[in-house]
Design a protein around this nucleic acid. Structure first.
Lengths: 190, 190
DNA sequence: TAATTCACTTGCCAAATGGCAAGAAAATTA
DNA sequence: TAATTTTCTTGCCATTTGGCAAGTGAATTA
């Protein structure tokens, strides 16, 4: 799915608007483990994921690495605080698998804001949707046991469950890698 | 803090805009336990809390009541899905203490969208901020033990911790009321 | 005030999860 | 391919948290 197709599900774009978008984006590939954004840096771009998986992670007050979010195809990779408020990011965005993305630079972003009616509004909506989904999902994790949490994860992000390392998933779910390993074993023997 | 003052922290309002707002809002009081919105209903208003505490709760797949959110003064009470997308709400909004709010009806809302520049945009930003705070807080709960979670809660919502019933707080934190009671005891004896 | 209900506490035990060490398996590098 | 590193698994035990029953205390109602 292209970027214009995706935006098209939120607002109708004229031919000119689509052209404007397509002329002002670039493609980029990431190898697994490469960074889209490293902690402490400011970001001047947003990525729309065509294929692959990214994760957002940070270190908690005990120095433990926490993966707080996974991003997959048809989602955006980027730090809202960093891009929109020009603040240094408190976490890192890293490719888990090889990835292909469409890059929107700050310059292009501003161009789109100016020349595409409702651009900013649609984007806000998209961001909101993601956040609501995320809170709801996390809420579901809080009020259940580890096994149910993993099953829910498996159901919601089947692809990520398959491709992301165990310890990323474990910290995302708020359990230890040991527990997750045992849970997987238990599930496998059903 | 009035509504205009609050919005004023997001965008500058002209005298006319402030007047428009003040002429098209109403005040309302809630006694403790009264509902702002009941599960299954659609909502045609948004409330800005002047004083008191509301909670959002729903029933999970096991029929257990879950309090997923607390709202306090200077925050909005309302269901985004219900108000903006005109969907029946999947949870209820209830006053925990006696409350005073400013009510924005759908009619007023549409008036503000039309006549106040950036109104909708500011609102989106506010909504986003709330959501980001909420996800971050929940994330913190996921990756710690119950005691630390409660201390964090105590620190973030001292007022709620004092005034909300134990079982609301417990389900919010994802622990049992029994555990919370014990944690409180442990903390008290420090 | 007395009666009743509701919210909270506490003790006991069970279940779930964490922590650590050792080892197996997989991936990476030489 | 062999060597090395990294990731994952598993056993053992400690700790945390849950579940339930009984009891206490507070709030509400009659």
């Amino acid at each position: 799915m292209t970027l214009t197709e995706f935006i098209g599900t939120y607002q109708t774009l004229t031919k000119e608007e689509k052209d404007l978008i397509n002329k002002n984006i670039t493609f980029r590939k990431f190898n697994a483990k490469e960074y889209f954004l490293e902690s402490g840096n400011r970001s001047n771009e947003i990525g729309f994921i065509l294929s692959g998986i990214f994760r957002y992670f940070f270190y908690d007050s005990n120095g433990k690495e926490i993966t707080a979010h996974f991003m997959i195809e048809k989602e955006f990779v980027g730090s809202a605080t960093s891009f929109f408020e020009y603040m240094p990011s408190s976490g890192s965005l890293q490719a888990i698998t090889d990835c292909e993305i469409i890059v929107i630079s700050r310059q292009s972003w501003e161009l789109f804001c100016r020349d595409i009616k409702n651009w900013e509004n649609s984007f806000q909506k998209i961001l909101n949707e993601v956040l609501i989904k995320k809170t709801n999902f996390q809420r579901g994790l809080l009020n259940t046991d580890a096994k149910t949490a993993y099953l829910k994860f498996l159901n919601t992000y089947p692809n990520v469950a398959q491709k992301a390392p165990l310890n990323y998933i474990a910290s995302f779910l708020g359990i230890t890698p040991f527990s997750l390993s045992r849970i997987r074993k238990a599930i496998a023997s059903l």
